[in-house]
Amino acid sequence: MNSGASPLLAVKDVTLQYRTHDHLVTATYRVSFDIHRSDRYVILGPSGCGKSTLLKAVGGFIRPVEGEIRLNGAAITKPGPDRVLVFQEFDQLLPWKTVKQNIAFALTASGKMSGREADERALHYIAKVGLTKFADNHPHTLSGGMKQRVAIARGMAMEPAILLMDEPFAALDALTRAKMQEELLQLWDDTKFTVLFVTHSISEAIRIGNRILLLTPHPGQVRGEINSSGNDDVGADGKPFSERIQHLLFEQQVAERSMTHD
């Protein structure tokens, strides 16, 4: 439906590099993809494929050495409240603010709204993630899953053009994780926000995404871009969807490894 429309976010031939203490590392090499409005776009790849770096580049924290990233046609040069990041780390909430203050802070700091209005919007989104009872708690009194819910509420309260999620459920236990995935999909059903979601879990990618970008590691390059129905269906070739993804991501490595062993 959207194929004719111009994309919300256009990533074109983006090469990203970063410096460690004694190396210059190329994180991604000439990666291109488009995200359309209301997409649940997932970047999937093993560790070292530069997916988090790519997300931070969309966030404006890292400048590409080659290529460009455009949001609604305008090139991204610095971080801004139109692209809100949700991190994997539980410490993304400011511990000196309560749950409500954490969200209201984001709204006032960005100049979106002030005082009362910000509080009301904060409470609205806290209710959306089911934490009304904990609105005046400090983050350290919450469980990991609850903290991530607050972070998601904060991101959504900003009503950004695109929500950037960097493995937000990776540090949670498996049961909480499944529940959070379910909740995220329900929230999406509610407001149809656009989200760019990074993960290294194939099952999570299938569950969350409507479109999945596959990256291979060292440096990250696009291996493919596929649609997901949300279920791990058995395809025409008689293999489950997840196995097909696994094959696409790892077949090359397996081939290389077997060659070196000969």
Partner: peptide
């Protein structure tokens, strides 16, 4: 100060004083 908090601060467009 944790890099995550720094990024959160930058993300919401705080001025350097803020």
């Amino acid at each position: 100060v944790s890099p995550t908090w720094r990024m959160v601060g930058q993300n919401y467009g705080l001025s350097s004083f803020g």
